[in-house]
Amino acid sequence: MSTAEILLIALVLDALLGEPDWLWSRLPHPAVLMGQFVSWLEKRLNTGHGRRAKGLLAVTLLTCLGLSLGWLLSLLGPLVEILIAAILVAQRSLVEHLRAVATGLTVSLDQGRRAVAMIVSRDTETMTGPQVARSAIESGSENMSDGVVAPAFWFLLAGLPGLLAYKMINTGDSMIGYRTPRYEQFGWATARLDDLVNLIPARLTGLLIALVGGVLRDWPAIARDAAKHRSPNAGWPESATARALGLSLAGPRSYDGEMRDFSWVNTAGAKSITGPAILRCCALLWMTWGLGLALLVAFTLIF
């Protein structure tokens, strides 16, 4: 069975089953185990002098562990590869988290804030309804790249070793890749490597979203808005989503009690958005997934 065929089955399996509670309430999720290993490395290496060098050592260990585990697990055969890929490509759970925010907003603003706090790292306690909705949509578009397209891309390119190495790097970046006094030196190597491994997937995600959203003609504007983003990669899917949905995303937001003045994406779009916009985003992400799946089927048939 080819890598493309394994990936195809894994994507469909994830779309059908997602992350069943009955399983992950009994067993630790692989992403949780990865996070625990990152935490273990950080506690032991992020001390004293030479933290940049220690951070380089940490991301090297993460990458090597991912490659090694992926190679060993791939020896167990296609069924194991399908199951692991289905677990680590998180399309259905991504959309379910977004739907939870939309549902929460229909109940109350506090409920919406609690739901969005599960998927974003910014301050949520004083968010308005439109800020909650924007945060969910931004998270959804960025995680379409980090959680779906990039894992699939690296699996297609390098099999299970590529997928696990990517997830290790991406998990590391989500935990230590911050410009804070604690992590700026130690997490720099992980953050830079994460930027590198997401370089192609982020732009591919933006292109897929633009295609299904009917805004490919706006690609020059999408590229201009993406360049304003604080991340070299996250701006691409976010800018494409903003144009596809006719929304204005990003803008000022608060982290750890500090308001940061980020640029708006698609300034001509609507800013007063609510739960229905999140549901439109969910539909857009499923269409993006569907286009990616169709391209993968075509790739499988041709090659």
Rank of each mutant, 00 (worst) to 15 (best):
F262P: 07
I169E: 05
A250C: 13
A53D: 08
T267H: 11
E42F: 02
C281E: 10
A165D: 02
W289Y: 14
T124D: 10
T288M: 09
L98E: 14
Q91T: 10
G187Y: 09
S145D: 03
L247N: 09
T205N: 03
A31E: 03
A226H: 08
W40Y: 12
L57V: 14
G66V: 11
R217N: 14
G66N: 09
A242P: 15
W236Q: 07
F303Y: 10
P28I: 00
L94M: 08
L65A: 14
D261M: 13
V12S: 08
Q36N: 07
L245I: 11
L279S: 09
L56S: 09
S93A: 11
W22H: 10
L57I: 15
S121W: 10
P237F: 07
N46C: 06
L56A: 15
W154S: 00
S254W: 09
T60Q: 06
A250T: 12
A242H: 11
Q91I: 09
S108C: 08
Y178D: 04
K271R: 13
A210N: 07
A223E: 15
T103A: 12
M1P: 02
L17R: 06
E96Q: 14
K54A: 04
T3M: 01
G50L: 05
G292H: 07
S272I: 10
N233E: 06
P181A: 07
T128K: 06
P20M: 07
T274C: 13
E19C: 03
A223M: 15
I137E: 04
A150Y: 00
T3A: 02
A85V: 01
L73I: 00
M118E: 13
S93W: 07
P220Y: 09
R280I: 13
G206F: 03
A268L: 13
M144I: 01
L57G: 06
A90K: 07
L109R: 15
W154C: 00
I302W: 15
M259Q: 12
H29T: 02
R182L: 08
D195A: 07
R52Q: 10
I84L: 00
A223Y: 13
Y183P: 04
L196V: 12
R113H: 11
R230T: 10
G35R: 02
G290K: 08
N198C: 03
K167Y: 00
P28A: 07
I273C: 08
L204I: 03
D195S: 08
I6E: 00
D195F: 06
L69K: 01
I200H: 12
A117V: 10
A115F: 12
R44E: 02
L157A: 12
W286A: 03
L16Y: 05
T128L: 11
A133P: 02
L291I: 06
P252T: 12
L75E: 03
W188C: 11
P220E: 11
S263W: 11
L23R: 04
Q36V: 03
H229M: 08
T241K: 11
D146W: 00
A189R: 05
W154A: 00
D194G: 02
V265L: 15
I84P: 00
D256S: 14
A4L: 09
S141I: 02
P161Q: 04
G35M: 02
L61C: 10
L83A: 04
L301Y: 14
A202V: 04
G112M: 11
H29V: 02
V95S: 09
L75F: 01
A221H: 13
T267W: 13
G290Y: 10
I137R: 03
